[in-house]
Amino acid sequence: MPSPLEDIIAKAIKDADKSIFNEDYGKQAKSVVAALRKARYEVVPVRPPDGLVEWAKENIPFGRLRPADLISQMYTMMVENVKKYDR
């Protein structure tokens, strides 16, 4: 049984290109990325780019935060900004 993420990807590919031959893989890939974003997923590198790590260090949320809240905020902040620093 496919996972929900696999279902999202499969549906995106199926909906992107109905042709039998000469499939447009670029169109399919764009459809997959769009479907993932709509489902609140983002494709990011396994390791954060150096520029993002430096930026995140300078933008650590201030104030008293529970460790879980700090980690959640940092994760969200880094994922939302990875494209700016992935070079």
Score class of each variant (00 low, 15 high):
Met1Gly: 07
Met1Lys: 00
Met1Thr: 04
Met1Ile: 04
Pro2Arg: 05
Ser3Leu: 13
Pro4Thr: 03
Pro4Asn: 08
Pro4Ile: 00
Pro4Cys: 01
Leu5Pro: 00
Glu6Trp: 01
Glu6Cys: 05
Asp7Ser: 09
Asp7Tyr: 06
Ile8Phe: 01
Ile9Cys: 09
Ala10Pro: 09
Ala10Asn: 08
Lys11Ser: 13
Lys11Arg: 14
Ala12Asn: 09
Ile13Ala: 14
Lys14Asn: 10
Asp15Lys: 12
Asp15Glu: 13
Asp17Glu: 14
Asp17Arg: 14
Lys18Arg: 14
Lys18His: 12
Ser19Met: 14
Ser19His: 14
Ile20Cys: 15
Phe21Ile: 11
Phe21Gln: 10
Phe21Ser: 13
Asn22Ile: 13
Asn22His: 15
Glu23Leu: 15
Asp24Arg: 15
Asp24Met: 15
Asp24Phe: 15
Tyr25Leu: 15
Tyr25Arg: 14
Gly26Leu: 15
Gly26Met: 14
Gly26Pro: 10
Gln28Met: 15
Gln28Val: 09
Gln28Pro: 01
Ala29Trp: 12
Ser31Lys: 14
Ser31Tyr: 11
Val32Ser: 08
Val33Asn: 09
Ala34Tyr: 04
Ala34Cys: 10
Ala34Gln: 12
Ala34Trp: 03
Ala34Thr: 11
Ala35Phe: 07
Ala35Glu: 13
Ala35His: 14
Leu36Val: 02
Arg37Gly: 12
Arg37Cys: 13
Lys38Ser: 04
Lys38Ile: 01
Lys38Arg: 10
Lys38Met: 02
Lys38Pro: 00
Ala39Gly: 03
Ala39Asp: 10
Arg40Leu: 01
Tyr41Trp: 07
Tyr41Pro: 07
Val43Asn: 10
Val43Ser: 12
Val43Lys: 06
Val44Glu: 06
Pro45Ser: 06
Val46His: 00
Val46Met: 05
Pro48His: 06
Pro49Val: 02
Asp50Glu: 11
Asp50Thr: 10
Gly51Cys: 11
Gly51Glu: 05
Gly51Val: 04
Gly51Thr: 02
Gly51Asn: 03
Gly51Ile: 06
Leu52Gly: 07
Leu52Ser: 05
Val53Thr: 11
Trp55Asn: 05
Trp55Gly: 08
Ala56Cys: 06
Ala56Leu: 05
Lys57His: 09
Lys57Arg: 12
Glu58Trp: 01
Asn59Gly: 05
Asn59Glu: 10
Ile60His: 03
Ile60Cys: 00
Pro61Asp: 03
Pro61Val: 04
Phe62Asp: 04
Gly63Met: 08
Arg64Ala: 11
Arg64Met: 12
Arg64Phe: 10
Arg64Thr: 05
Leu65Ile: 03
Arg66Ile: 00
Arg66Phe: 03
Pro67Leu: 00
Ala68Asn: 08
Ala68Pro: 07
Ala68Ile: 01
Asp69Ser: 02
Leu70Arg: 10
Leu70Met: 07
Ile71Tyr: 01
Ser72Ile: 00
Ser72Asp: 04
Met74His: 00
Met74Arg: 02
Tyr75His: 10
Tyr75Arg: 10
Met77His: 02
Met77Lys: 08
Met78Leu: 02
Glu80Leu: 07
Glu80Gly: 06
Asn81Pro: 03
Asn81Cys: 03
Val82Met: 12
Val82Leu: 11
Lys83Leu: 05
Lys83Thr: 03
Tyr85His: 11
Asp86Ile: 04
Asp86Glu: 12
Arg87His: 08
Arg87Met: 06
